[in-house]
Simulated assay, not measured.
Amino acid sequence: MKFGKLQNIESVDFTLPVDPVGNAALLASFPKDEQPMAVYVGCTGWSMKEWIGRWYPKGTKIKDFLSVYAKQFNTIELNTTHYRIPDPDLVAKWCSQVPDDFRFCPKLPQTISHSKNLGLGGDQLPFFWEALDNFGEKLGSCFMQLPPYYGIDRLPQLAQFLSVWPKDFPLAVEFRHESWFAATANITEWTEVLTRYGTTVVLTDVAGRRDVLHQHLTNQQTMIRFVGNGLHPTDYDRIHAWVRQLAAWKELGLKTVYFFPHEPDNILAPDLAHYLVQYLHETTSITTRGPDPISTGPQQGDQILLF
């Protein structure tokens, strides 16, 4: 993930923003239930030969990568759908290789998210909805990454898009253009629209664009895209802060979290995912499952695993 990456992070303030006042009121507006918070932790792909011997057993074949990945993680940021809408047979094959608690988070095709009209009136949206239906209960939250040039002046178009998006398919939207965060009034405007349609807003924690880490919630679900810096010590400090934030949101009524750690080339992403899950279990009442290393020798990410 190159968006917002910096070569030098020494001057970056990685402190999480103060929790917006509206989050507590929003979560309080939903009916109370006893269901525990569901936390899904995953990476952006399963085809990583570099994980063999560390996260995948030695000798793992390429054809078995997904099934092995799904034993380590319970979700995936499914980027392949950004470039091609999968046919029913491929989706069925994917779903057959993962356990019942696994959730796919398909990225919207660029023919939709990067088109002039977000696919409205064309054939790509219905085609994609058909594909999503094939995931069944293993569908997590879809994810639409708006292009960097898509500004808040196009909010009416986005609202129209959300009004036709099927309610059976949870959706998260990531804003990148600076205008979405340029003024309090702008934030108020889009949070109202996304809340109205039950749409999640993505929180992106990346060094070079601290404005996209806005901390606003728009329903009982959040999606966090965390961009690390090669397991720099600040990566672990930031994880500590996120665990405290998730624990606070859990008490307020947040129900679902999708957390996707990114690292350079994603080779070290499982190390950070492992640390996140271990720290959650060690310091909070939140439970989930995450990767456990297969190898026992010292690794780059092990030096700070004692907390």
Rank of each mutant, 00 (worst) to 15 (best):
Y83I: 01
I112D: 03
K138F: 10
G228F: 00
L217Y: 06
Q245I: 04
V212M: 03
P293E: 07
N79C: 08
E251M: 10
W129L: 08
Q145S: 03
V212N: 00
T80R: 07
V39G: 00
Y40R: 07
Q160C: 07
Q220L: 02
E77Y: 08
K58C: 01
S47M: 05
T283S: 12
V41C: 12
A207C: 05
G121E: 11
D205H: 08
G119R: 08
Q221E: 15
T184V: 03
C43M: 15
K2A: 14
P109F: 01
H214E: 12
C105A: 13
K250R: 11
Q110E: 12
Y197M: 12
N23S: 14
P261W: 02
A92W: 01
T15H: 10
V39S: 00
L155R: 06
F226D: 00
N134C: 10
S11I: 08
K61E: 12
L132Y: 03
S96D: 13
N186H: 14
T111E: 14
F135A: 01
E174D: 06
T296V: 11
L272I: 02
K71A: 12
P86N: 02
Y56M: 11
L306W: 11
P166T: 10
T111L: 15
Y236T: 08
A24R: 14
G122R: 08
L26K: 01
P20W: 07
I294F: 10
L213I: 03
A241C: 11
Q215R: 06
P99N: 11
E34M: 05
A172T: 05
T184N: 04
K32W: 01
T80D: 08
S285D: 15
D33G: 09
P17N: 07
K61S: 07
K167R: 15
M37H: 01
V206S: 02
H216I: 05
V173Q: 01
W242N: 06
T256C: 09
L194N: 05
L213P: 00
L132F: 02
P298G: 02
F175L: 10
E178V: 13
P261V: 05
A182F: 04
K2E: 12
K2D: 13
D64Y: 10
I294Q: 08
Q299S: 06
T256R: 15
W94G: 00
D123H: 14
T200R: 04
Y236I: 10
D123V: 14
F128Q: 00
L246Q: 11
L90P: 00
P148E: 11
K116I: 09
F3I: 06
R84K: 12
D123L: 11
H114W: 14
K138H: 12
L27D: 08
M144W: 09
I286T: 09
L120S: 11
W129T: 05
Y150A: 01
A269W: 00
F169K: 15
I152V: 14
D33Q: 06
M48E: 04
H240I: 13
V98Y: 04
P20I: 07
H232V: 07
G22N: 13
G22P: 02
I62Q: 13
I267S: 08
A241E: 15
Q245P: 04
N219W: 09
G42M: 09
I239N: 04
T44C: 10
M48S: 03
A269H: 00
D153P: 00
E251T: 14
K107N: 07
V243N: 08
A159G: 12
V164M: 13
D292Y: 00
Q35L: 11
L194P: 03
E174P: 04
D123S: 15
F3Q: 08
Y275A: 12
F169I: 13
E178H: 09
F65I: 04
